[in-house]
Amino acid sequence: MAHYIIDAFAMIGMSYIMGFLFYGFYRQFNARVQRRWGPSVFQNFFDNMKFLFKTETIIHGPMFFFGPMIIFAGAVTTVLFVPYLKDSNWLQGFSHSGNLILIIYLLVVGPLGNALAVGSSGNPFGVMGVTRGLTRLMGLEVPFLLGLALVMVQHETASVHAIMAAQTDFAHWNLMTNPIAFIVMILPFMASQHASPFDVVGAPVEVYAGPRVEFSGRLLGVLMTQNMMMTVAKLVLIADLFLGGATTIWALIAKTFALFLLTAAVSTSFPRLRTEQTVDFFWKIPLGLGVIGVIATVWFPWS
């Protein structure tokens, strides 16, 4: 029991620290691309603390308050169901009680809970953001899960541990043995990270809309915290599935950072898509590739 508790806190702490450092790096990276100096890598931590220690928070009824709590609980549950290390007793959380499909569904439990809070705020622009988010989810989930299903078919299991264990060395990484699955799911994966060019849901600049429009003070801090932790959990999941997992914390940081850098590079390079363009894009390019992948690996397994 004590092992579980320490392990859980280690995973949560590690996700948080990696989360704010990664996002801090992203702000630096973005600034340098735009020839600015940018803030320090610790800026996200400072921002987060500033929100969490605000004295005033305005709410719109009980459901509005519980929404961020649900999304935070969803994020922590996700973190605890993703195995962080391979062949280790530590940083495992409750991952032996779960599987890949469960984790993918856990990723959306929180946002849906938060959607209730947005709805109860009574701000139509917030609800507009939720609808955009659900629409994007509809677009990205199909190729994302299809890519992962190709991996599940390859290893005949939905268990993340088993998939990780099968990738013994670099040549057996799923990135090498099943590259088409990686290509199919990587863009939807970036969209699930709320990364540009698929980030119109949060409406970063153009209109005052998006799921977070009514949240302020400490509730906004909770939302920011869970977003950073969720990002790390997703990165670790993809590192587990395609980059062979990690046996040490340093390998884990290196692999997740490589994935994050890829996301950041794509984000800074492409202009933002509208929601329906995003959906249409996912249903044409990644899903089309996915269909080709299915035909190539399942219908005619010549490898």
Partner: peptide, 30 residues
Amino acid sequence: YGGYDGVAVMGVFATVFVLITVLFLLVRGN
């Protein structure tokens, strides 16, 4: 193909939910 534990999922989710709510309400601030 692997499975999952209903008590673990519900338990973890409910525990975290209760903990974070209590923590949130205990920390100072209006």
